[in-house]
Amino acid sequence: MIDFHTHPVLIQELAGKYPNYRRMAREVFQIGNNFQPLETFFLQMDVAGIDKAVLLPVDCARARGDSVSSNEQVAELCAGSNRFIGFASVDPLKEGAGRELEHAIHQMGLRGLKLDASLQDFHPDDKKAFAIYETAESLRIPVLVHTGMSWAPETPLELGHPLLFEKAIRRFPKLNFILAHFAWPWVWEATAMALKYPNVYLDTSCLYYDSPKEFYQFVFSKQIPTTVIERSLRNKIVFGSNYPRVEIKNMVHALKTLGLTEGCMTRILKLTAERLLAVNAAAPELTG
C-alpha cells in the first residue's frame, strides 16, 4: 500500500541538522506537534499497513522565507530507505526552475513534482508555471498540485480552486495531475475534472473538521455519492494521508469504513499510485 501524500516536516534528525527546519515547521507549515525520530515515521506507516510513502516538499522560500522541506532533504531521506518515494518542488517564478527540476529528477532520483500555488504564491496560469508543466511533461513525471483549503497561514483559498488548473490540464494532456486533498471544499469540481480529463487524478488527503471517519463518511457519501468512486473514479484516486497533520492509520481506517469493494480499495491504495509512479508513465491503463 502507498501513501501518496506525506510531509517530512517533523523529523528530529533533520531538525538537528538544518538550522531553519524548526522555523519552517512551526511558522511556514504551522504544525505544533513534537519532532519525532525517523523511526516514528516508519512505525506510523507500519501500524497503518503502508509499505511506501511519497514525501512532498514545497519550495516556497521566495514567498515564505523558507521551504517546507527541500529537495535535498527529501533526497536524503529517500537515500536512507526504499520505503520513501521523493517528489521535487521548484518555484515556477524562479529563474532556472526548469533546470532545477531536471536536476532533481535526473541527478537526485526524485520521481514527481509538487506544487502549491497558494503557499508558493504563483498563479497556476502564469506562463512561467506553464514552462514548468512542460518540463514535467517532458520528464514524464506526475505533478501533485495542492488544491482545496490549506491550513498553512496566509494562504489564500482562491489559489486552491481546482479549476485554476484546467487550462494547464488541457494544454498538457500527457502530464498527469493529481489534485490533492480532493480539492475540498470544491469536491464536485474536482470530481468533474477527474471524470472529464484522463490526466486528472485525486488524492484522499482531506480532513478539515470532525474525525477522519466522520469527514470521509460525509465527503464520500453525502457530498458525492460513494458510487461515483466505486463505479467511475476507481482508477483515478490515490490514497493520501497528509501525515503528520493526521496519523496515517486514522485515514486508512476511515477509508475502509466507506464500504468500497476490495478491487476498488486495491486500486486506491496501491495500483493507481504504482501506475502514476512508473518510470515510464505509459504504463497500461487499468480496466473495469
Binding site: 504544525i31 505544533g32 480532513l207 473538521y209 470532525d210 474525525s211 497533520r245 493526521v246
Partner: peptide, 19 residues
C-alpha cells in the same frame, strides 16, 4: 473511538485537527 466527542476540531496551536 467512535463516541460523539467535542474534541474533534481544528486546533490552531497544533495546525491540525484534534480527534
Amino acid at each position: 473511538e467512535d463516541e460523539n466527542y467535542h474534541h474533534r476540531r481544528y486546533l490552531d496551536y497544533d495546525g491540525r485537527l484534534g480527534f
